[in-house]
């Protein structure tokens, strides 16, 4: 029994290395993976190779080779910042997919309806996008609370907290603009309530509301405006601020603590 297993493993190894050798020596392969990449020279577990995995990977932009031991304990960050980022990625992927079937016009509601009824996985992807949006708001907020309870906003991380507040606002704006897009009663009236609140701004109230609604009330012009903000403008801005946020996490000396 044991012998057979080894044989099978060896055979697998033979196949993969036989395939691999000619492939790995090709110019194309070598041009894709950097020298030192485990994809070029194979991976065996050693401290040196552990460093190489990170150093020869695009993730080197996000992660240093080594991190504080307490920072990788799940109980410290609860991975909340990371999860905020992951939900954002899920939202981007599902969102792009939804764009194939959605027109921000008077057809919006019909598009959502037929998406749910006549397109493969349409309902699932729409649900994923919607629940992920709610979860992102929640997770970002929890991340903020985690940061507060750890005092992780203290020097030298003050400014990263400020960036964080901007990220929170952008997250809320993304969610709020997306809320209108299904163009049903829930959407239009939630946005009307929000827009009317903005209308109570002293002095500029009417102008703020007009800019938000592209008119005096929520119409199809509002829909187009929110659509552009939702799929283009806010994602663009939030990615920039996320980049700054992650960069500062590293520049400020990695994760804070230990407590």
């Amino acid at each position: 029994m044991k012998n057979e297993k080894i044989k099978f493993k060896d055979r697998l190894k033979d196949i993969s290395s036989g395939l691999g050798d000619s492939l790995k020596e090709s110019t194309l392969w070598g041009s894709i993976f950097r020298p030192g990449s485990p994809f070029r020279k194979g991976y065996s577990d050693s401290p040196r190779n552990r460093s190489y995995v990170v150093m020869n990977n695009v993730l080197y932009h996000l992660h240093p080779v080594k991190v504080k031991r307490h920072g990788v304990r799940l109980s410290y960050t609860l991975c909340l910042g990371g999860l905020s980022f992951f939900t954002f990625i899920v939202l981007t992927i599902t969102g792009i997919w939804l764009m194939f079937y959605f027109r921000p016009t008077e057809m919006a509601y019909v598009d959502i309806q037929s998406l749910q009824t006549s397109i493969a996985f349409g309902s699932l992807v729409r649900n994923m996008h919607r629940w992920a949006a709610h979860i992102m708001v929640l997770v970002v907020f929890l991340h903020m609370s985690r940061v507060f309870y750890h005092g992780a906003y203290k020097a030298p991380r003050e400014f990263n907290w400020v960036i964080g507040v901007i990220l929170l606002i952008l997250t809320l704006l993304l969610s709020f603009t997306g809320y209108l897009l299904p163009w049903d009663q829930l959407a239009i009236w939630a946005v009307t309530v929000g827009g009317n609140m903005a209308g109570y701004t002293p002095v500029f109230g009417a102008q703020v509301k007009f800019a938000l609604f592209a008119g005096l009330e929520a119409t199809e012009a509002t829909l187009l405006r929110f659509y552009v903000l939702h799929v283009l403008f806010f994602p663009f801005i939030i990615v920039i601020f996320m980049a700054i946020h992650f960069w500062r996490v590293r520049k400020d000396g990695g994760i804070s603590g230990p407590l």
Binding site: Q113, N127, W183, Q185, A190
Partner: peptide, 30 residues
């Protein structure tokens, strides 16, 4: 996410109608 999306349907009410105000009109939960 896939799990809850499979079991929970996202709401889709009647088409938007500026003339029918729901009572109450609530903002998004946050």
């Amino acid at each position: 996410l896939i799990f809850i999306s499979a079991i929970l349907q996202a709401p889709l009410l009647e088409e938007a109608n500026p003339n029918i105000t729901p009572n109450p009109a609530k903002a998004p939960w946050y």
